[in-house]
Design a protein around this nucleic acid. Structure first.
Lengths: 197, 197
DNA sequence: TTGCGCTGAGAACGCGCGTTCTCTATAGTA
DNA sequence: TACTATAGAGAACGCGCGTTCTCAGCGCAA
């Protein structure tokens, strides 16, 4: 009707969402390259023709999956942060969020790290999406750390702990990595704040 | 001649070594699945027939590459540790080793983590090799931490920092992750030892 | 009712892969 | 010298992939 309509939800949008749901589950469980477009077709019920009308290529489906994972991650961190009141607790809430995630049945590590390992070297857009996600997280940590009045060196340390916890939990299958990282984070925060106080 | 000969180096061993050298470089740079057996053939000068005489399958080449990476990693950590004298310094030497590694031109993250992301879900032997490597490292850290008289909770924290540094350096391309992890490790060690002293 | 345009299902295509097969060249033995 | 066994090069195979093409079916205008 007019040029400003931006939030109309079409039937195609619903199909796109369904495709991303299914693709995310399959990609995350088995890796991108081991899931064929034909399997995506049979699992979604969306024909190949329609699929290629919704997405120009498989790569774009991967990127759409990663974009949604980014949104879900950001919302999850924000939700965990909203349950506590101090900046210090908001920093620690990151690891509580991780702890919940790690205990999910289908947890298989960070989808970005996995995709980066599989495709980062050959698909630049995947490497970029992964870098963006990590940079966004690092900036979030830096902002909350700044709110807490912590010195600048603290935030990268806390981000590294979060990354390491994800990798360790994924590979070793030990969900406790979140708790270990949380305890380390608390020590680092206290040390940083103590030296400041 | 007799049944006890175990260290005879044959011409095939030399070929195997060359194949592993080349495969490691290509797999690490571009990922396993994007490197074909034919490319391995042309880069090594070893015919496909010979290659399949040396290794029963591509998967076995991947596992041989990972096994050698395990050895190189272990030797590198031991070498870094040998340059210092106290258990505390041996723990910190881990991050000095990482710092050197991260600044290499072709650094592209931990080969195990990358392979795990690419193949861990579909090739059980790759997942197992990765778990073994990480478990071996965790045990090393635990041993040195015990030598230092640190409480048991310290070692997993230090291992998580090392994992996180590798991931962060690989994705964000920031070699400084090693230095940040080292500083965090020093803080954690001092806090753990301080509470013990 | 008839014609027309469009949507979409799924068959088909071309390519590249891991692996195997064939055939040649050579070295050792009588 | 003649024969045989072996090794090896690289052509060939079968399959599975991402993507494209064909054609049937349907809604709508006149």
């Amino acid at each position: 009707m007019d040029a400003t309509e931006t939030t109309v939800i079409t039937a195609d949008d619903a199909l796109r969402t369904r495709a991303i749901d299914v693709a995310d589950r399959l990609f995350y469980t088995r890796g991108v390259q081991s899931v064929s477009m034909d399997e995506l077709r049979s699992e979604t019920g969306i024909s190949l023709k329609k699929m290629y009308a919704l997405f120009p290529s498989k790569e774009q489906i991967v990127l759409a999956v990663l974009a949604r994972r980014h949104d879900i991650w950001t919302a999850g961190i924000a939700d965990a942060a909203s349950r506590v009141s101090t900046p210090r607790d908001r920093l620690l809430a990151i690891y509580d969020f991780l702890a919940d995630w790690f205990t999910e049945d289908d947890f298989r590590g960070c989808g970005f790290i996995n995709s980066f390992g599989e495709l980062g070297a050959t698909v630049p857009a995947v490497a970029e999406a992964t870098r963006d996600q990590k940079a966004s997280f690092q900036q979030y940590v830096a902002e909350v750390a700044a709110e807490a009045g912590a010195p600048a060196y603290l935030a990268p340390q806390l981000a590294i702990l979060a990354e390491g916890a994800q990798t360790t939990a994924a590979i070793s299958g030990v969900p406790d990595a979140a708790g270990q990282a949380r305890a380390a984070a608390a020590t680092l925060i206290d040390a940083a704040m103590g030296s400041r106080a």
